[in-house]
Structures are given as structure tokens and as C-alpha cells.
Design a protein around this nucleic acid. Sequence first.
DNA 1: TTGTAGGCGTTATCAA
DNA 2: TTGATAACGCCTACAA
Lengths: 323, 323
Amino acid sequence: MVSIKDIAKKAGVSISTVSYALNGSPKVTEETRQKILAVAEELKYVPNAAARTLKTRETKVIGLYLTDFGGAFYGDLLQGVKEVLNQKGYDLIVCSGKRSHRFLPERTIDGAIVLDATFSDKELLKYAEMGKKIVVLDRELNHPNINHVFLDNKAGATLAMEYLWENGHRRIYVVTGPKASYDSNQRLKAVRQFAERHELDVKEVEGRFTKESGELAAERIFQEYEEPTAVFCLNDEMAVGLYMYFRKTDLVIGRHIHIIGFDNIELAEYISPRLATIDYSKRKWGALASEQLLKMLSGKSVEHERIYVKLIPGESVGSLSNR
Amino acid sequence: MVSIKDIAKKAGVSISTVSYALNGSPKVTEETRQKILAVAEELKYVPNAAARTLKTRETKVIGLYLTDFGGAFYGDLLQGVKEVLNQKGYDLIVCSGKRSHRFLPERTIDGAIVLDATFSDKELLKYAEMGKKIVVLDRELNHPNINHVFLDNKAGATLAMEYLWENGHRRIYVVTGPKASYDSNQRLKAVRQFAERHELDVKEVEGRFTKESGELAAERIFQEYEEPTAVFCLNDEMAVGLYMYFRKTDLVIGRHIHIIGFDNIELAEYISPRLATIDYSKRKWGALASEQLLKMLSGKSVEHERIYVKLIPGESVGSLSNR
DNA sequence: TTGTAGGCGTTATCAA
DNA sequence: TTGATAACGCCTACAA
């Protein structure tokens, strides 16, 4: 392992001079700098991150926590995060699982972006209390060191309900996510509000945001089927589960069963009929989250941000009037 | 920042005793250990990873390099890697982009698994030469510190060709991946061998492993269309591109255009008709790669490994005899 | 402009 | 069984 000490020896200068030269300080002459750089090159010197971190107390690395690595869902979001971070001289690492939580208190990362249901509020608050800067994307947490950037879930859910309503649907199911999911709860709240306003009786079926739970929900809906029915799946993944189930029945999606989802995942475009859903820019979400985090890291104060949503129509929802 | 020094002071012992106690050394009495643990708890002590790494020269973290974060493709693979790693006391971080390459020489990670076309052979060899242990999943590289675990691409491509052949297809296209792709080249080689053996004239269309390039290929195939034609897309992503294109024409997949892909991505199951493809266990691939890496890290010698493949039939390929 | 020296938090060797 | 002390590699006053 070659260190600045080795360079100093070989170049015939002191280690501090080497350090200055390497860090581009104006305190050394261009001549000595060149000599030192040449020696460093020759010795194939590589700085030791651990040593520097120990001294500077920062790693220039941000951790992004995900519930799991499955699902194409996060691609764009991560891309958005990475672009902003890199541009500001930071690196991104993606982590999952309890073990990796240690990165935060142990200072392996300078800050974290969390989109991980298995990361408890309590633990997050503990780290925030230790001074760690955190941006959460999947919950609301009140702490000066924690900022949130979330989706406009309520607007999205309302858009979805309006779309069904305008297409003449009055017989409506909603398939929810896990009880602990912030997003699910927000969306459900908006659905209930809509139902109340329109004196509508929306049947709630509990799901878990997975395809399998979507299939289960479909089974129940199928059994209760009497006449054309609409289903608002609180995420697209479950909507795909419904597709899978109804594909095996004689009920046709977009005709007997009308489905709208939430998230506009890639699959939504490729299954047929095209799934109506609620879209938002995942890349922007990620970009905004990282900008917020970097601001916090540099001591600036930040406001909580929100990502706007829009409706994507699809043939999975047909009009009831012209049937 | 509370360090072992603070604990030592408060507990009235020396820092070395604290270190021993914290690391579960048998050199301290149970009594002092308990006392020290209690003080550590009270002070909310958290070990400093940088300091420890500086000393021990290891981080217990493995880096996995990906070309980009997009695509659902890697979910299972990452899961496989993570499970093995965690079980052996290591953490996984997922990285992408040139900036993060520094983790390897700077010792932020103990080793790397690479599935990243943008990571050059030259750079990889440089790090290997520095003593870094690396497992590559997307190329062949000859160095004692580099191990490969790859797919049995040739067997897969041959299976695909045989499937088309057995279904009576003689008019066959192959849509390739990027010229620099190891996987694409291996698969193509097998296709050519098959063609030669069967005195078949396989038309080659160049693709880039993306949906868009699949659509482009489809356009050309459409223009040249005369009679039922089979297409072997060297990955599923491009096959989806073909679906998108032909959906807008009057040629029906599984009837006029017969398609088989490679990878068995999630989408393959959900588009219709079901895409015939070549499957392999991505989770196992990841698991094997990490096992290999850990073995290398512990100084053991390893053999290059291979992941086996199997055919997944699908209605995207129809039989030509019973048409 | 360059050198000296102290310290960041750990681990580990050697004495006591 | 415990303590003093020297690294690990880097940064940065302060001194020269």
C-alpha cells in the first residue's frame, strides 16, 4: 500500500507538501507539484478513503434504501438520484436490508434517502437525532433532520375515481395496499372522500401491493360479479394480478371488468388492454429528493416537497354509457 | 462523536480494555465487559467504520456494478447476491457509473461483482493487478484475481434454434445485441454453428438489446416479409420491441411472425402471446457469484462457474406444419 | 513555500 | 486480566 509518506520520501519533500500538492492547494509551487504528481503516478498512488474519512468526517457517498431489489419500479428514480448526486460530486450506493442500516450511524454514508417500508420510523428518528440527514419518500416524519418528498397521492386517487365516475361507473371496488403503507393510506383516504361526496358505496378489498394479492382480490370480485364493475387498484402491480386472474375467466377487461391502477409501471404499457393509471415522474422524484438532501447536508433549510401526478387513460376502462 | 476513549474514561478502564470488551475478546472478565457494555449503551456509542477500516484494511462490504439502474432484469440476481453475502457477514452495495469505480482502489469495498458493460476490461485488470478480487458476469478475463460465472449462452441459443427448427421454421432471422456484448457474441456464435450444421440461411439483424432496437429490427423484417418467418431475438427486451411493432401491423405473432427471446424477463410472461424464451436462475447466478468472490477473499482458489439454461415454450412460436 | 507534529478512532503488540 | 503505546493514512494548524 503506497501512501503519501512513500511519495514524500521518493520526491524528497515532507508529507504535508505532498498532501497540499495532491489537494491542489496554492501553497506549493507549480514545480514541486508537478514533481510530486509525477512520483504519485509512478508509484501508482491511490488515496485511502478510510483515512480521509476519518479525518474529514465525510465520505461523499449517499445511501438509498430500498425495501428489496425486485421490481422495475425504481429504475428511473435511481437514475434521477444518481444524476443529481454525481453532478454535485457525490456517489450513490443502493442498499437493502437491515444489516446495511449500520452505514448511517457508522458514517459510511453522509446521508440517506429512504424508500423502504422495513426501515422503522423509530430507527430513522434515532439516526436523525444523532444528526444524520435523511430524506424519506414513503412516510411523514417530523424531525428537523428529516425531510420528505412525496407524491400527491390524494390528487392521484381522486383523478382515478373521477375517471371511473365520468365513464359511468357506479359499482366500484378499491383494492388497497398493506395497512402500514403510507401511500396506500393516503390514496384510500381520497377514495373515501370521493365516495362520500358522491354518495357512492365503494367496496374495499385488502391487498398487499403485490401481483399475488391482486389475483386474490380478483377472485373475490369475480365471485361477487353481477354486472359491469370497476376496480381501482391502489398500485399497478396488483392491477396486473387482476389481469392474470380475469384472463382465465370469461369476463373481459375493459368491458365487464374495468381497471385503473396507480404508478404507471413499465408493464402497464405492454399488457393489453393498456392499463389506465396514474403517472408521475419517477426521475424527478429522485432528483428532487437528492437535491433536498444535499441542501440539508450543506446546512441549508428546506421545505417539504411534493410530486405532481397525472392521469393516463387506457382501454382497461371502458365507458358504461355506450355499452 | 463518542469514541472508545470516552467509554474508557467513564468506565475507569483503558481504551484497549474497551476495545477487547466490545469485540468479545476472552481477555476481559465478564464483569468488566458488562460494565463497559453498559457504559457504551449509556453513551450511545457507535463504532466508527472509517477508523476500523483504516486499521483492519477491510470493510466487509461488496460492491455490485451495474450498467444502469433501469430494467427489472436484475432484481432476482441482486437478491441472490445479497442473501449469500449477508449470511457470511458481508453487506452489499449496488453501484453504477464511472465515478463509483473509485470504491475499488480506494478500498471502500473489499471486492466487486461486475455486470456492467461500461466498466472496461483494462480498468478491471488494473484493479485486479492491484490485488482486488473481482467476479465478472459479463465477460471473460484472464487474471488470477478475476473469476467468471457466466451463462451457458451457447446451449441456450442452440435450444432456441432447435425449438424453431422443430416447429418447422426454415426462414429465420436473428436479432443480435451490441457488437461489444459478450453474451450477444456467444449466442450469435451458437446460432451460426447451428445454421451451418443444418445448412440454413439465418439472416442477421443488428440490435442493441433495447426495445427500440427491437422495433427497428421489426421494421426491416416487416418490409422483407413474404411468408411466415421466425425471429430469434438474442434478448427478451428486443422481443418486446418486436411485439410493439407488429401490434401495429396485420401480421400476427405466433402465426405469421414467430418469436423467441432469451432471458425470460418478467414481461415475457405478461405480454400476449406468451413469449417463448430461454430461462435461467438469476438468483442462483448471483448466489454463485458471491460465493466465488468470498472464496477468493479468503484466499481459496476457485474454478470458473457456469449457469445452466432451459427452454420456456410459448405461443409466440407456432408450428408451421399444422397451419 | 515547505516542514513538524498532533490528532481523527481503532486495533493490536507488548509490558505490567 | 488490564494498561500504555504505536501504528493505520491523511489533513492542517503552526512554525520555520
